[in-house]
């Protein structure tokens, strides 16, 4: 469903990605792993169109989206939860969800309830300003907000980073449930044990190259540990 071929991108003259290729098949959960600074977030930003690809292609459901703008990719069914539990801080929790719903192609208010079913913890907070939520609550809001667009592929950038442990558990379960319901997921994750629990497929980035790819069983090995160790 998502097919990335020989993707290159960077910031100004500094290249970060050197010909990255991978696929996400329908209903699969694919995990991107790698140390800090190897280009994981850059890869997701390029897939979403926040950063322009300098070479290579991104194809989604058979359509070349490499040159589309981010909001056009969202309309096609890509849902993105960026790193660092970002919100619109001055809007209420409901405002955050509504503004996304109103920009979505379906505009069906039922999507709000669906998203809140996945994250029931948000229900009593709907009137609160998003900027005043805790990090964990903001992360759940960010995920719920992406779900409101009814994405076909959910892209998550380190959803558990810097989140209190009690909520990490909930977020992990939510990802598991969404995946089980048939949603395809592209997940960036630093922690091997979490990746092992969740992922169908994985690939490891190092210095802008895909250095390993495969199924979960192949994640257990000395070499993999070496690639992920700090």
């Amino acid at each position: 469903m998502l097919s990335v071929r020989s993707l290159e991108a960077g910031y100004g003259r500094a290249r970060v990605l050197f010909g990255v290729s991978f696929d996400v098949e329908p209903g699969r959960l694919v995990c991107v792993m790698g140390r800090n600074g190897v280009g994981k977030t850059t890869l997701l930003n390029t897939v979403m169109g926040v950063l322009p690809a300098t070479a290579g292609t991104v194809t989604f459901e058979g359509r070349d989206v490499t040159r589309l703008r981010p909001h056009e990719r969202v309309r096609l069914g890509l849902g993105y939860v960026p790193q660092g539990h970002e919100t619109f801080p001055q809007l209420s929790v409901m405002g955050n969800l509504l503004v996304t719903l109103e920009a979505s192609p379906h505009k069906d208010p039922g999507a709000l309830d669906e998203a809140l079913e996945v994250f029931p913890r948000l229900k009593p907070l709907l009137k609160r300003r998003a900027g005043f939520l805790s990090g964990g609550q903001q992360q759940q809001l960010a995920m719920a907000r992406a779900l409101v667009t009814r994405p076909k592929l959910l892209i998550l950038d380190e959803p558990t980073e810097g989140i209190q442990p009690s909520i990490v558990q909930e977020i992990e379960e939510a990802i598991e449930r969404l995946h089980a319901s048939g949603l395809a997921v592209l997940l960036v994750e630093q922690y091997l044990d979490l990746a092992l629990r969740l992922a169908d497929r994985f690939f490891i980035l190092d210095a802008g190259h895909v250095v390993r790819a495969g199924g979960a069983e192949e994640l257990r090995g000395e070499e993999v540990h070496r690639l992920l160790a700090v």
């Binding site: 979403m48 703008r69 981010p70 969202v74 309309r75 970002e86 509504l98 503004v99 996304t100 920009a103």
Partner: peptide
């Protein structure tokens, strides 16, 4: 809803774009 979209773009332009808002 237009005003809300406007505020969203002002508060976090990049996030608004990846949430499907046509920032242009």
């Amino acid at each position: 809803s237009q005003g809300r979209r406007m505020r969203a773009v002002m508060q976090n332009r990049q996030l608004a774009a990846v949430m499907g808002i046509n920032t242009g």
